[in-house]
């Protein structure tokens, strides 16, 4: 990537001003929902009013967050705390497993190609784009036959399987840029396929692992369709399913819904803030270079 060099030549000052105006306006558009999310969450119950939703809170209060997290026994709705940890228990192992599997596949498909391996790769890749509606009906039947329906391990399994295409793609692209001589050298030293992976490929795979893990974590955390189909039981629901439920419930005030939305968004937003660089790399996974 070329660094941004300010190019001011031949520019009229008002044009520059205009571009800033457009950028600031755009920034306001992107920040608007976050503004509402945050200020609503910080208002006390007395101050929450749909007809004054844009006003700043007069005093800081975390009531809404507490209620969204713990729920309310008197009103009879569950908080999101349990579901938050469900999502963690889901996303972390699923991410690690996906990354491991993708790394293996990418390694084989780039460095140990065999006849037909490219076509095989294309067939794998298509799995990334299918509308999951086209597999839901048999998915429920099969998962229940093998005893994985309705459980977090079942959902982990589903995410790992449908994560194979994307993780394989990213790792294969990454390993493609690793010189073949490295592998050859390993062979000459008498290392086998796993030995070469362990001693040569794995140690230099960290950037690809970072990208894959961020992507898988984000998409698994944010998934709704598999969650609502595979784990609808309240005790095992991931947070997106629980949030959608909370937000559709008449007894839950809208400020509590907003606070819940922020809670559900927090982990991926933090990940984005801390590791935003890798996020960009994930976007440009195709041209990922060491």
């Amino acid at each position: 990537m070329r660094a941004a060099v300010p190019r001011t030549r031949g520019e009229v000052p008002w044009l520059r001003l205009a571009s800033y105006a457009v950028l600031v306006a755009a920034a306001l558009f992107y920040l608007l929902p976050i503004y509402v999310l945050v200020i609503t969450g910080m208002k006390s119950f007395a101050e929450v009013n749909l007809y004054r939703m844009w006003d700043l809170p007069s005093r800081f209060s975390l009531d809404s967050f507490v209620k969204a997290w713990l729920g309310s026994a008197t009103q009879g709705f569950r908080g999101l705390s349990n579901n938050f940890w469900n999502s963690v228990r889901l996303a972390v192992p699923a991410t690690l497993l996906s990354a491991a599997l993708g790394s293996m596949n990418g390694y084989v498909l780039s460095k140990w190609r065999f006849r037909g391996s490219d076509s095989l790769f294309a067939l794998l890749l298509f799995g990334m784009f299918i509308p999951y509606q086209s597999i839901l009906i048999p998915l429920v039947q099969v998962l229940s036959r093998i005893g994985l329906y309705g459980s977090i391990p079942g959902l982990i399994f589903v995410h790992v399987v449908y994560g194979i295409p994307i993780t394989t793609l990213i790792f294969r692209n990454y390993y493609a840029t690793v010189p073949g001589e490295l592998v050859e050298a390993g062979k000459i030293d008498g290392a086998g396929i796993l030995g070469i992976y362990r001693s040569i490929m794995f140690p230099i795979s960290m950037p690809a692992f970072a990208v894959v893990m961020i992507w898988q974590f984000t998409s698994i955390w944010n998934d709704f369709l598999f969650g609502v189909i595979v784990t609808p039981r309240p005790a095992v629901q991931p947070i997106t399913v629980a949030l959608n439920n909370l937000a559709g419930s008449y007894i839950v005030e809208w400020n509590v819904q907003m606070a819940g939305a922020l809670l559900a968004a927090l982990p991926t937003m933090l990940l984005y803030i801390v590791l935003g660089r890798y996020f960009m790399r994930g976007l440009l996974a195709g041209s990922l270079k060491a």
């Binding site: 940890w85 963690v88 228990r89 972390v92 991410t95 690690l96 960290m206 692992f209 970072a210 893990m213 961020i214 982990p267 933090l270 990940l271 801390v274 590791l275 660089r277 890798y278």
Partner: peptide, 15 residues
């Protein structure tokens, strides 16, 4: 970066 990530993950796993 990875250390940060894995720390996040470990912290998340505790409860």
């Amino acid at each position: 970066g990875l250390t940060v990530l894995s720390l996040l993950l470990v912290v998340a796993l505790v409860p």
